[in-house]
Design a protein around this nucleic acid. Structure first.
Length: 503
RNA sequence: GCGGCCAUGGUCUAGUUUGGUUAGGAUGGAAGCUUCCCAAGCUUCUCGCCCGGGUUCAAAUCCCGGUGGCCGCACCA
């Protein structure tokens, strides 16, 4: 195995060369870090992943919604993002070094009590405790806020922010959901859309973006229903690769494949419904093509948790370029969000339980699409003696079938065009290529992960057959032209294995 | 944000130390020829010194600033 930084360069070079992603964007003006453009293949791949994600949620009885990406300040005040998402920072007046004010104070004065202090209070603490720059011992400036939300203005002067997560915009619809779901809980919705975070210095390319596509599934549920979740039965014996916090605290990172039911008995999960959400998130990632041995589900340590989280687990994917990458968070948000919005909006966001108003809890599955997108390319990359290729599962491959006339002769081009149309009609993303030698064309498709290539040759004209070439084995079978579209559909959707054809 | 290193066709890279021919190579792309099944061959063509200033007769090369990348620190609710 190559060193990881080499591998990262290999992946990025391939992605640029073949049109998966380019950046940082806008490239011709030098670029801003944290922004990338998706090229044609990257966009196809992303669409595939999103389609896959969407169908997983829909099957699990989630309804999709879409909300604005900009909201007035009041929303973010209510959600806690204006306080919790803003870091107090202080800058050295001598060398310009920027610090998290609270962290730096605690570093130099571990006894200091900082909970709930305002920016002014923090500035006073810095003076009182004689906290100084860790790098040059210089004098520190006053504490200022560094807001990870992108600020904008509505109309002339209304303060507004780009959403740093889609979840909050979903919660604001809760009253509407109650009507839509005819006052029945639990109810589940999800959203796929852009979110924005003004990271101080984003690095690691596609893995830390300032603008990204977030997927968030929300289950609104009453406390009393969380322990008795009807759909739990169907998954109780499934196994999950778990890394609970007790194990991490003991200094180990050993993942144990654990039955969902056992994880509850052992106390890793407290609630059936939450366990089901973790299982759902895991199965979404499996369907995106990540293999079992490249995934783990890691519990957050208490100090890692976000301001809203009661419990939190992450799905992490093992990459060759960045090691374990955090790809998805499953959060038990309790009723933090709805309570806050109820208070700030003065709207009733509760339901009646035994004639008393109860604010429901929220279980959330949240992830960005760009991370799995990058990880999918990373995990698919294979370099052997003969070729460089991407072993995408056929269902997520950006292009599923390529069609080649053996040569660019009119007598072959014409039937090849027809066959191309037939396969497109079957709903598969298909690419027509007549340029260069046949071998070169196979290699080009290998490098972008196209699972099947169809070649039209002189035998096609005589016997109405074509060859189907399998990316993984490089083997070919000859099939009847009339059977082709159905066969390809079965191959792409995994109903037929290519191996079974060659016998 | 700080410090160190770095930025050359689509991709990878030589050239920068010591300023001076038409910026070289590999790979790729386009068109054509070849009844061509795994990056074959031949012909023709295509594409580049990150941006902005400065020094100089002359800048890819030296200096300053910006932007971006990598590494370390910080940050990543």
């Amino acid at each position: 195995m190559k060193p990881t930084s080499d591998f990262r360069e290999t992946i990025v070079a391939l992605a640029k060369k073949r049109g998966f992603f380019w950046g940082p964007s806008p490239e011709i003006y030098g670029g801003s870090s944290g922004f990338f453009d998706l090229g044609p293949l990257g966009k196809l791949l992303k669409n595939r992943l999103e389609d896959n994600i969407r169908s997983s949620f829909v099957r699990a009885s989630f309804w999709e919604v879409e909300c604005p990406t900009v909201s007035p300040a009041i929303v973010w005040k209510a959600s806690g993002h204006l306080e919790g998402f803003v870091d107090p920072v202080t800058q050295c007046t001598k060398c310009g070094q920027l610090y998290r004010a609270d962290n730096l104070i605690l570093e130099q004065a571990p006894e200091a009590k900082l909970a709930g202090l305002s920016l002014d209070d923090l500035s006073k603490k810095i003076e009182e405790l004689e906290v100084h720059c860790a790098a040059c011992k210089g004098i520190l400036g006053p504490a200022k806020e560094y807001n990870l939300m992108l600020k904008t203005t509505l109309g002339l002067d209304q303060e507004a922010y780009m959403r740093p997560e889609t979840a909050t915009s979903t919660y604001l619809l809760f009253k509407r959901f109650l009507t839509f779901f005819r006052d029945k809980l639990p109810a589940s919705v999800f959203q796929i859309g852009k979110a924005y975070r003004n990271e101080i210095s984003p690095r690691q390319g596609m893995l830390r973006l300032r603008e990204f596509t977030q997927v968030e599934g929300q289950v609104f549920i009453l406390e009393k229903d969380e322990h008795d979740w009807p759909r739990f039965e169907s998954i109780r014996d499934d196994k999950l690769p778990l890394l609970p916090c007790q194990v991490q605290e003991s200094g180990s990172d050993k993942v144990t494949s654990t039955k969902v039911s056992a994880a509850l008995t052992k106390g890793y999960f407290q609630k059936q419904a939450y366990a089901w959400c973790i299982h759902l998130a895991y199965s979404i990632f499996r369907k995106m093509g990540f293999s079992e041995d490249h995934m783990r589900i890691r519990q957050h340590l208490p100090n890692e948790r976000a301001h809203y989280a009661v419990d939190a687990w992450d799905i992490e994917v093992l990459t060759n370029s960045h090691g374990w990458v955090e790809c998805c968070g499953i959060h038990d948000r309790g009723n933090y969000d709805l309570s806050r919005h109820q208070k700030h909006s003065k709207e009733k966001l509760s339901v009646k339980v035994d004639k008393k108003p109860v604010v429901p809890n929220v279980l959330e599955i949240a992830f960005g699409v760009e991370r799995p997108l990058f990880c999918a390319i990373d995990n698919a990359y294979v370099e052997d003696e003969k070729r460089t290729w991407l072993k995408f599962p056929p269902e997520i491959a950006p292009i599923q079938v390529a069609v080649f006339p053996l040569m660019g002769k009119p007598e072959l081009l014409e039937p090849a065009r027809q066959i191309f149309e037939t396969i497109m009609d079957a709903g598969l993303i298909t690419y027509f290529d007549q340029g260069g030698s046949i071998g070169r064309r196979y290699r080009r498709q290998d490098e972008i992960g196209t699972p099947f290539c169809i070649t039209i040759d002189y035998q096609t004209l005589e016997e109405k057959t074509v060859t189907v070439r399998d990316r993984n084995s490089m083997e070919q079978v000859r099939v009847q032209r009339n059977d082709l579209a159905d066969l390809l559909e079965d191959l792409v959707h995994g109903k037929v294995a290519f191996k079974s054809l060659s016998k």
